[in-house]
């Protein structure tokens, strides 16, 4: 009876359960960071990685598409980590951002978005070609997926690609997003990601809002507004370029 009541209380107060759960997860992560890595790996990097591992487990265990939040008990995690709260918190980080840094790197940031979309797209197309795809629509859809997991299906649907290819493009985009979250803190030092200027360029090149949000949180939260600022234009730019200019280029070659 106690267990049933507890379960009902936790499920009925999903968002509050999520606050408690995430709080515990963050606490464990900082403990691991402190004791096992002596602070070398940042606590938030561990928390995000643990989150992804749990999301993988949730997906495998429930067969759903929303990771850990497909467990009814943790449905609130889906709300807390959904686009609404994510974007709200990202906007909040802008408060106190350095306006001069944004202005001075503005043009370079815009430039990096175009380069970022084109670069990921070309690499996606090349990889798809190497794996035996030769149809221009298939190649374009997978290339678009390598940009973000939203650009892929939008482009594939616009061009009339098969659902199997669209699913592949989503998988490519998801892989990119997950890797950006985990990988950023490890390469940040080597690629000079330690100032607003390079963070703006990083956001424009990576483009995945979730990836950039997670990657910068694990590296240096102070850089979040700069990276998020450019990343937020990337998906729109990708949806604009991939089914049009980039598709025509692919069709011209293949």
């Amino acid at each position: 009876m106690i267990l049933e009541t507890l379960q009902r209380v936790l499920e009925n107060n999903g968002l509050i359960t999520a606050f408690m759960f995430v709080g515990a997860l963050v606490w464990v992560s900082y403990l691991i960071s402190d004791k096992l890595t002596r602070g070398k790996v940042h606590g938030s990097a561990i928390a995000i990685t643990l989150g992804l591992v749990l999301a993988w487990y949730g997906g495998v265990a429930t067969g759903g598409s929303r990771g850990l939040s497909d467990f009814p008990l943790l449905a609130g995690v889906g709300l807390m980590g959904g686009a609404m709260f994510r974007d709200f918190a990202i906007v909040a980080t802008a408060f106190g951002a350095d306006v001069r840094a944004l202005k001075s790197a503005g043009l370079m940031g815009a430039f990096s978005i175009v380069i970022g979309v084109a670069l990921s797209f070309v690499i996606g197309v090349v990889v798809a070609f190497a794996f035996g795809y030769t149809d221009a629509i298939d190649l374009t859809t997978i290339g678009a997926g390598a940009a973000t997991y939203i650009v892929g299906p939008v482009t594939g649907t616009a061009l009339g690609a098969g659902s199997d290819v669209i699913a592949l493009s989503v998988a490519a985009g998801l892989t990119k997003s997950v890797l950006v979250m985990i990988g950023t803190p490890f390469v940040a030092g080597r690629i000079g990601l330690d100032n607003p200027h390079s963070a703006l360029i990083y956001g424009g090149l990576m483009g995945t809002t979730s990836g950039v949000a997670g990657g910068l949180a694990a590296t240096d939260p102070k850089l979040v507004p700069y990276g998020a600022m450019t990343a937020t234009f990337y998906t729109g730019m990708g949806c604009l370029l991939a089914p049009s200019v980039l598709y025509l280029m692919v069709r011209g070659i293949f």
């Binding site: 999520a18 995430v22 938030s44 995000i48 989150g51 997906g59 929303r66 997950v178 949000a213 949180a217």
Partner: peptide, 17 residues
């Protein structure tokens, strides 16, 4: 922001990726 990003990570479709 960071706790929300942790929740965001926990709801990603990692299995499908």
């Amino acid at each position: 922001y960071i706790p929300i990003v942790v929740a965001m990570a926990a709801r990603q479709n990692v299995a499908e990726a």
